[in-house]
């Protein structure tokens, strides 16, 4: 009788502990979206937000912010990729357009994905893009070239101490990944 009570309470406790284990396993996965949300709010990792709408808000003509454009090519991406403007001075609130150039130097069709990153990371919260090639993937045939526009505005609430914003794009070759996911959906 007493043994049975002991066994039951053991099983109950084991059950609870296993629930913690399962919970923590999923917590690890939950950390990914949690971190993304956290970064969206604080801008800590310099990731920019998705597509923004231009609110035609006030333009702060008194302030000038330098915006620099960097391009990087990740290992194994046979494209030429550059910004046609290295840096511009803008007033917070005004809508600006810059152009990027890409050319597939290889003999194959390649799909590219640009990943934006802003420094200082905090600045990512105030750099809003209304149109950007980084929202989509680009497929270029062998030797094909493309000019890609990017429209953005700086939120006038940008903290005073930020005078330079750097927007960097790193271009990745995602041809294989695209192929794999297409294969899966079939």
């Amino acid at each position: 009788m007493k043994e049975q009570v002991k066994k039951d309470s053991n099983q109950q406790l084991v059950g609870k502990l296993l629930a913690i284990v399962a919970g923590m396993f999923f917590f690890a996965f939950a950390l990914i979206p949690l971190y993304d949300v956290f970064c969206d709010i604080t801008g800590i990792n310099g990731k920019t937000k998705g597509k923004a709408l231009y609110p035609a808000s006030r333009i702060d003509l008194k302030r000038e912010v330098t915006v620099e454009f960097l391009t990087n090519i990740n290992r194994g991406m046979p494209w030429e990729f550059k910004s046609m403007t290295t840096s511009i001075k803008v007033h917070p609130g005004e809508l600006n357009e810059v152009k990027f150039y890409a050319r597939n130097r290889s003999q194959k069709d390649i799909v590219g994905q640009s990943i934006p990153s802003v420094s200082p990371g905090e600045g990512a919260l105030y750099l809003n893009k209304t149109e950007c090639f980084c929202f989509d993937q680009q497929r270029l045939a062998a030797g094909e070239e493309i000019e890609m526009p990017m429209k953005f505005y700086i939120d006038p609430d940008l903290p005073e101490d930020i005078t330079i914003l750097t927007l960097s794009y790193q271009l990745f070759n995602v041809t294989e990944a695209v192929k794999a996911s297409v294969g899966e959906t079939r």
Binding site: L17, I20, V21, A22, G23, M24, F25, F26, F27, A28
Partner: peptide, 10 residues
């Protein structure tokens, strides 16, 4: 039991 599952998740 709190962190080994996180390692497993990783």
């Amino acid at each position: 039991i709190m962190v080994m599952p996180v390692l497993a998740g990783t």
